[in-house]
Design a protein around this nucleic acid. Structure first.
Length: 715
DNA sequence: AGCACGCCGACT
DNA sequence: GTCGGCGTGCTC
């Protein structure tokens, strides 16, 4: 045996490192078979359960396990399960010679459990400090966080960062005033309009755990309907949690709850509240002083006592997807909570996502829908303007708005406010030749051309202006991108109707409500103000802009945004009219005309099942530098029924493109692979990816690999 | 991520 | 001999 390094000492010295480690381990085990909490200088320890199992608050995946610490006598009382602690952690001070251990930084953690004996064979370090005696991490929340971490191949510490708000000492010092007893069981109110609506409320009120996908009728009643479901749950002696996608709907539900339950019965947990207020409200919930919660996505983890109902409104809104690792989605987390806590589940919206349709199809939830007569009575009349109409429409070319749109606005303004939905910048699709539809590209770098507010063309990649575009394919010189920003549209409409005020609502300034007086209200999707008494008409000008996006959800998203705008318009019987500029043959457009979001989602679901697309199959996106990605995929022990698609270059890593959040570092070229598994193997896929990632990080893999379960933007 | 341990060459 | 390079592996 000729060994290259020729140490020649024989025995353990020349063994390969992994064997060495094994030998060392064996020696250590033999010396200290089971450690009683031996610590520095034999300082006095807690008499009962002297070991604290601690989750150290580091998001690193290979530290995603508990560490045992000795509990000094003076911390015995405070170091209860669930409290925040500080511990020494790190390789520092392996100086056991004089029986003292020091070094390693102080880091935060949570006591998960108190136990009699550690199974760690070595001297335990002691808890350095109990940050506060407030138990913030109870077993339910820990279990949920664990489940979410597994579901999304993330670390427990990362999830806890989302689930437990940062401590605020002043907020903690204040006592939470308990809510007065809740009002008695409610009447079903407008829930009568839905087939099984009254039954659903009755079940909640009597302590049941019904699960429903609710297709809300257009109009403003949805918030009150949610409040009634909450009220029914409170009447059963249980708590309720409502999660909405943004601050404005949160304010609506807040107002409805106050109107129905009075003050002090519920807490509002939104991100924009500021640390002290956030923690105060969260603590009131945790302490059981408040039993009902409405909030935005971070509230999905709210530690509501004796949870009886979880509600998610408008689950298709991107606001429900957390943008911190591991990117949990409100709908999925609340599904987990409903299953784990055996509580009621209500997923509602004017539209219907494919995932929601799947919950119904699998039998996990029941549909809560109104019959066609109710829908017809509540919905506005929807008319379309397609390509054919536009081509025949001379006026449209001159004025950039179809004749039908002008007529509808003119008529609507005689009876009240008119809503104009225009695309947001990010949703404007590539410009194309109006004649042959070839995409308009920059002549220098072939980047996509984009119209600026002032109307001139500019390359999205290199920024060069293009003053004299013509189509290289057919010689045409007209571009098909009449869609312009909100301001431009507002100016133009304002000139056409000089007697009418024009109001705009968009990202910079969002209007909450407008009066019933005639006005033009120009808004980007999601920022539409509510009109008192409803809009007389709405113009949806972003049709093909939204449908043109190269995204699996383009159709579903477009329909959702249209329905959200159209739901603010008066019923057809009261003259409410909607005009959508989009091809009437397209499935989402037809679904809008018939006001049939469920039918759309069901067909979409069937199609995705056939093509092996999510959510029927489960997918994960794995991205990183090409070599690192290849190594990762080779090393990962993926489930045998998984299929790797790609890798392909990550769109948007070309130089000069605006960087997207969570994307690669600037100037780096990344690739992305999609891993697909059939239904039922989702958990195995997440586990395999998590294991591979942990192994990689433990080996000190410096090149980052990003894993995202259920990626949102798969072309 | 830090940080110590340990196995290598260059030095007083 | 012993000081110090940085390559591996552990952190209760």
């Amino acid at each position: 045996m000729s060994s290259e390094n020729g140490q020649g000492e024989g025995g353990a010295e020349s063994a390969p490192p992994e064997q060495l480690a094994l030998i060392r381990e064996a020696v250590r085990k033999a010396k200290a078979p089971k450690a009683k909490p031996r610590t520095w200088r034999g300082a006095a320890l807690a008499k009962e359960l002297p070991v604290a199992r601690v989750l150290v608050d580091k998001g690193v995946l290979h530290l995603d396990r508990y560490f045992d610490y000795a509990v000094p006598e003076e911390l015995d009382e405070a170091a209860q399960p669930g409290v925040r602690v500080r511990v020494r952690f790190g390789a520092g001070g392996r100086n056991v010679r004089d029986g003292r251990r020091e070094g390693g930084g102080l880091i935060d953690g949570f006591v998960v459990e108190r136990i009699a004996e550690s199974d760690y064979s070595g001297p335990l370090a002691a808890l350095a400090q109990v940050v506060s005696p407030e138990p913030v991490l109870d077993p339910e929340l820990l279990g949920l966080a664990r489940a979410v971490a597994d579901r999304y191949a993330g670390s427990l510490a990362d999830v806890l960062q989302l689930a437990v708000p940062p401590r605020h000492a002043r907020a903690e010092a204040r006592e939470s005033t308990p809510a007065p007893p809740p009002p008695p069981a409610p009447a079903p109110g407008t829930w009568q309009r839905y087939g099984r609506g009254a039954d659903f409320l009755a079940s909640l009120a009597s302590g049941g755990a019904p699960r429903a996908v609710w297709t809300a009728l257009p109009g403003p009643q949805w918030a009150e309907e949610i409040a009634r479901a909450v009220q029914a749950t409170l009447a059963s002696g249980r708590g309720a949690l409502v999660v909405v996608p943004a601050g404005r709907p949160a304010a609506r539900v807040d107002a409805a709850l106050t109107a129905l339950l009075g003050e002090g019965q519920h807490a509002v947990l939104t991100a924009d509240a500021g640390q002290e207020r956030r923690y105060r409200e969260w603590l009131a919930v945790r302490r059981g002083a408040v039993r009902a919660v409405v909030g935005t996505r971070a509230a999905m983890f709210a530690p509501v006592r004796n949870l009886g109902l979880v509600v998610v409104w408008d689950d298709g809104d991107a606001g429900h997807s957390d943008d911190n690792a591991p990117f949990p989605h409100v709908r999925e987390v609340l599904e987990l909570r409903a299953s784990r806590d055996r509580c009621g589940f209500l997923l509602g919206g004017w539209s219907c996502t494919v995932e929601a349709a799947q919950l119904v199809e699998s039998g996990w939830a029941l549909p809560l829908v109104a019959d066609r007569d109710q829908v017809r009575a509540a919905a506005p009349l929807v008319r379309t303007v397609g390509d054919g109409d536009l081509a025949r429409d001379e006026a449209a070319r001159a004025a950039r708005l179809p004749t039908l749109a002008w007529q509808t606005v003119r008529e609507g303004l005689r009876h009240g406010p008119v809503l104009v939905q225009v695309p947001r910048r990010g949703y404007v699709p590539r410009m194309a030749c109006a004649q042959c539809r070839a995409p308009a590209r920059c002549r220098h770098c072939a980047g996509p051309l984009q119209a600026q507010d002032a109307g001139e063309l500019r390359c999205e990649w290199c920024g060069r202006g293009e003053p004299a575009w013509h189509c290289p394919e057919c010689g045409g010189f007209r571009l098909r991108a009449q869609v312009v920003g909100a301001r431009r549209t507002a100016e133009e409409l304002g000139r056409a109707f000089p007697a009418v005020p024009v109001r705009t609502s968009g990202r910079e300034q969002v209007l909450d409500t407008v009066s019933e007086a005639p006005a033009l209200v120009v808004s980007t999707p999601g920022a539409e103000p509510v009109a008192e008494g409803g809009y007389a008409a709405a113009l949806l000008l972003d049709g093909w802009a939204m449908l043109g996006r190269p995204d699996l959800r383009a159709g579903e998203d477009a329909l959702r945004r249209w329905l959200a705008a159209a739901a603010l318009v008066r019923p057809q019987g009261a003259g409410g009219t909607v005009v959508v500029v989009a091809e009437p043959t397209l499935r989402p457009v037809q679904a809008l005309v018939r006001w049939d979001p469920v039918g759309h989602a069901v067909r979409e679901l069937a199609e995705r099942a056939e093509l092996g697309f999510p959510p029927v199959s489960r997918m994960a996106a794995v991205s990183g530098a090409p070599q690192a990605l290849a190594e990762f995929l080779a090393a990962a022990r993926l489930p045998h029924d998984s299929q790797v698609l790609g890798p392909v270059p990550v769109p948007g890593t070309e130089a000069g493109r605006p960087r997207r959040a969570g994307g690669p570092p600037p100037g780096e070229h990344w690739e992305r692979a999609l891993v697909r598994v059939p239904p039922g193997s989702g958990a195995a896929l997440a586990a395999a990816l998590k294991t591979a990632q942990a192994a990689r990080l433990a080996r000190g893999g410096s090149e980052p690999i990003r894993i995202r379960i259920d990626p949102l933007d798969i072309g």
